[in-house]
Write a protein that binds this DNA or RNA. Sequence first.
DNA 1: TATTGTTATACTCTATAACTATA
DNA 2: TATAGTTATAGAGTATAACAATA
Lengths: 153, 153
Amino acid sequence: MTGDATSEVLASRLGYLLKHASLRLTETYVQALAPFGLDGRELAVLAVLAAHDPLSQLEAAGRLGVDRTTMVALVDTLESKDLVVRRRSPHDRRKNVVELTPTGRERLPAAERARQEAESRLLAPLSPADSAALFRALQALALEPRRADQPPG
Amino acid sequence: MTGDATSEVLASRLGYLLKHASLRLTETYVQALAPFGLDGRELAVLAVLAAHDPLSQLEAAGRLGVDRTTMVALVDTLESKDLVVRRRSPHDRRKNVVELTPTGRERLPAAERARQEAESRLLAPLSPADSAALFRALQALALEPRRADQPPG
DNA sequence: TATTGTTATACTCTATAACTATA
DNA sequence: TATAGTTATAGAGTATAACAATA
């Protein structure tokens, strides 16, 4: 990102706004989570694992909406930081069960608080009503199942 | 993107929602703009050029929020599709003035309509109030100048 | 045969550094 | 010296294909 004189014709384009809002938030997460040695995606992985206790890599990937090959790299990173461990499932030895380490469990709550506070700072200029509407709208866009192609008309 | 059982702990994370809403929209653009031989970013470039008539590559890059090296590739692509032309500025021969070709000018309105309709379909499940709030909120997040680090307290 | 994890590989998007030409 | 455009290059992030172990 170089210039700052964003054109007015872009302010009404949903794609442009989503992309740049996303970039801005990623910056914010980097700053807020650096003290915890995490980025936003890694923290999301920890949160999902904490919430759904014993998850295989593939199950975690499904929850996170990432490919299983991406999940391998993600778990590699978190394991190298001693925040999660892989162990072979005794019930199905093809599966890796991924769990938080004590260190991971310890670090999670404070990192989540920092993330929450960073989001709140970023949303501070918005009215509470707009803030709530933003979440409702994004949930609809991001989480709703894809609709089939519209019939003409 | 593989699985679909998104975890509830992700539905309240602004970063996750923005990223995945952005991915969803990119998909939508691809479908809607394929008949015009464009993607969303390329259409945004055409729209900015049309709105601000004679722009140098660097000026256009500033408007679009992309690096000048990224702009080179973007203009290369559009020029190969005969949608824009570069010409050396007579006033400052270091600058490339980029303009729409007749073909580019012709194709722009229909492509913009298709984009607008695709966005409307995606936003259809939202109430008009939530839709308006979404744009207000995203404009605040994406376009507002960065604030300096907060003083403690 | 199908599934899980893994590796190798490639593709997209983007940025940094260095070069050319102009100012 | 500084600026505009370009090229080479490298780093994320992600996906596809192929393989090993297991079911």
